[in-house]
Design a binder for these strands. Structure first.
Lengths: 338, 338
DNA sequence: CTGTTAGCGCGTTCAC
DNA sequence: GTGAACGCGCTAACAG
């Protein structure tokens, strides 16, 4: 059988409680005692039983990551980041995919919490948008942090200045000489879509360009929606010289459509995306995009969460850094063209 | 406070043990009693405390998914499948990324098992290849199943007939008229690479074509390795008319390189991949590939695992179905060309 | 078929 | 600074 706390205590010639104190980094233990315990733990190869700990302490030592995102790379990166931090706190992480459009989302989340009893949650878009879920968590007073919520001011966690990033992207296009820049909006239920659209508009304004309805279409963040919107833009009389899609998947759709139509990228059309997902590096030409540090964001969200769980400190909303990745899909508009 | 088992028992006018029996679907309970318990559980909105259950039953009710795979979509799909099955058994799942090339892999796995104490494990490539890990699990007598192990006969879990699939792919190319078909091998530490190479060779043999060393290069499953191998193939005197990459990422690299060089796909070069990952649908032209049902494979691996954990039944090696997805990147070789 | 007793391994309360 | 007794909520072994 495995050694128990009691065995460690016997080995060290101490009481179980003292060993427990050492294990949980509690104060009021002499440093020399601490050492003796550490030696015995090592000697017996002792590891605490998580169930017993949880039962007695009335905590699960588990964090839940809630997601409902079609992008596997996004979820994987965030998950990896959260896991890293959880590991460092000897916490477990449970990945919880959940259909955020289902009518009984709130009761599902409630059930999930009741059955698994996580000590805290990390929420990702678009679950961060759901007022019912937020209300439920706040009512139950269960710690949580958000990644990229629509209104960062009212949450703890991490966000990106997506508006500024989009603005930068537009200015990049303008600096290349583009004046007819189209935008494909992201999924309507993701706060990011709105912020990126806002940044697009701001970028135009700053450059003295007009925001034109005809140059903006609603997408869904999916490759297919990129294809469809691109088609509509590109068969138009006066097609834009650049298309800024609100994410990389849609940008890839734009590229496919353009190539299919025989256009050259970036000579006939510049294309850019957002997120810096693997696809932006794996299509030809490679896509100019905004790097979103998902791994870091997962780490930060978890770190902020542990401030609440562990240190009983108030968590903050941290702003992560983005960067513009200029690649092969953007260039000067051809003077000939059209 | 939450209701406990005892409260349910009191409400139903029964003993705690009887309620416990119902909860765990044990036999020797009258059907009418079962109903009474169910009613009380419903009435009190009772949910068992997982820690207490685990402690008393000496089981964690948790399954661990071990992975070390660069493809986020692969891991996500498998994870989703495993999660679905775990949910249906009221089990939790812990995702456990682990560096399979680290020297102390075995001790890491051992530690992971000792600290989290999962009731079973699902192993994915390339961890399935590691004899030390397998030995450790067998020594500890902890249930596990494998997804796509190199030698399916000696494991339980799920596999694909990757050799047959590769063979089919080659025959597809041959049927289009190709006679000069190159292959890019996958990562050397993945069993699949070997099987796919074998299928490539078989496909050639069946079609009466010669296996030529000069038409086979070692890749790494990465986009970049696809780019490099493609370059070497395409600058050759007698370049192949088709390149079969052992996965989609490498195929995407081949496509980029070919387009960069001004080749038309599939007119000047046919390209195909393996896995049917999202990228195969999101590049232009879309990639002909083999569909690997990762979600199902995750489900199957978990289902087989629960045969051992729950039913104490022997698990099997299940063969999942693949299918050939013919898309836009393969076609007849142009008679003009070259 | 059902109930009783004991204990899983740890943290908490309070005493010293 | 340290220790003893108790209880967390549930299941196992046995009795009936």
């Amino acid at each position: 059988m495995r050694p128990r706390l009691e065995d460690v205590a016997a080995h060290a010639g101490l009481s179980a409680k003292t060993v427990s104190r050492v294990l949980n980094n509690e104060p009021n233990v002499r440093e020399s005692t601490r050492r003796r315990v550490a030696v015995s733990i090592e000697a017996l190869d002792y590891l605490p039983n998580p169930s017993a700990r949880s039962l007695a302490a009335n905590r699960s030592f588990i964090v839940a990551l809630l997601y409902d995102n079609p992008s596997p790379s996004y979820v994987m990166e965030v998950q990896t980041g959260v896991l890293q931090v959880c590991d460092s706190y000897s916490y477990g992480m449970m990945a919880q995919p959940i259909d955020s459009s289902s009518a009984d989302l709130v009761s599902r989340v409630a059930k999930l919490i009741s059955s698994r009893r996580p000590d805290g949650l990390v929420l990702t878009p678009p679950i961060t948008e759901h007022p019912g879920v937020i209300a439920e968590l706040r009512t139950r007073d269960i710690p949580f942090t958000c990644i990229s919520p629509r209104e960062p001011d009212t949450f703890s966690g991490v966000a990106l200045d997506e508006t500024a990033a989009s603005c930068d992207m537009v200015e990049h296009l303008v600096s290349l000489g583009h004046t007819s820049i189209a935008h494909i909006i992201g999924h309507p239920r993701h706060g990011g879509s709105e912020l990126r659209l806002k940044g697009y508009a701001e970028g135009l304004a700053r450059s003295g360009l007009l925001y034109r309805e005809s140059l903006v279409l609603q997408g869904q963040f999916s490759y297919q929606s990129g294809v469809e919107c691109a088609h509509r833009f590109l068969i138009a009389e006066n097609r834009p010289t650049a298309i800024f899609a609100a994410n990389d998947d849609m940008a890839a759709g734009v590229i496919s459509t353009a190539l299919e139509m025989g256009l050259r990228i970036p000579d006939d059309l510049s294309v850019c995306g957002f997120d810096d997902t693997p696809i932006s590096r794996q299509v030809w030409p490679s896509i100019t995009t905004i790097h979103q540090p998902c791994l870091d964001m997962g780490r930060i969200a978890a770190t902020e969460l542990f401030k609440i769980i562990h240190h009983n400190v108030k968590a903050n909303m941290v702003l992560a850094n983005y960067s513009l990745c200029v690649r092969a899909s953007t260039g000067k508009p051809s003077t000939s063209g059209r």
